[in-house]
């Protein structure tokens, strides 16, 4: 049930990314709700959950709006995993911390996406991408996280304290 709820939330994020936010760009780029979901999932619920949310959401994003299946899945899975790993070592009481996580996560996501995408000939100039996509999107992601933060905290409480999913040995 919880897995279905998470999938529906990710699908809603992809729909909003494709149909709503491109018409309200900030510096030419829209936010990545999937990235925000992956970072916050990792931050609140651990690295496995962060990586799985990033992977599932990223693949969904690739399938619906992307050109190369797996590119966004890869970058967001890594960012979700890293957010979980680093999140285990920081104090979660301060609401600024997740915003910093999202900002840094968006930068890392952009660098990974560009690195892999350009090696396949999909993307070109790094500095232009940094100026026109990676930085504006990171700022937009932080703004959206600021607006949605309380909602995600409530959702996290609704999903329960226990980290999901939990596997033997992980």
């Amino acid at each position: 049930m919880k897995v279905l709820l998470i999938f529906l939330i990710l699908a809603a994020c992809v729909v909003l990314e494709a149909a709503f936010f491109p018409y309200l760009p900030l510096g030419g780029a829209g936010p990545s709700l999937i990235l925000i979901a992956a970072v916050l999932a990792g931050f609140f619920r651990g690295h496995v959950c962060g990586a799985l949310v990033g992977l599932a959401g990223g693949l969904l994003e690739d399938a619906v709006t992307g050109r190369a299946l797996g590119l966004s899945g890869l970058s967001k899975m890594i960012v979700g995993y890293m957010a979980g790993r680093v999140g285990e070592k920081v104090f979660k009481g301060n609401s600024i911390v997740p915003l910093v996580f999202v900002f840094i996560g968006a930068l890392i996501d952009g660098v990974i996406y560009f690195g892999v995408g350009s090696s396949f000939g999909l993307l070109g100039d790094f500095l232009a991408s940094l100026r026109h996509i990676i930085l504006p999107r990171a700022v937009y992601d932080v703004l959206v996280t600021g607006v949605l933060y309380r909602l995600t905290c409530r959702l996290n409480r609704y999903l329960g304290e226990e980290r999901l999913p939990r596997y033997r040995g992980i």
């Binding site: 992977l55 969904l60 690739d62 399938a63 619906v64 050109r67 190369a68 299946l69 797996g70 590119l71 899945g73 890869l74 899975m77 890594i78 892999v116 995408g117 396949f120 000939g121 999909l122």
Partner: peptide
């Protein structure tokens, strides 16, 4: 393994494809 699988998948699907995968068609 997961990272290599994703890199391979994105490499294959980044080429000029004549058709999308069934998963992409169904989801879209």
């Amino acid at each position: 393994f997961v990272i290599l699988a994703l890199i391979s998948l994105s490499f294959v699907t980044s080429r000029d494809r004549t058709r999308l995968t069934s998963a992409e068609c169904i989801l879209r």
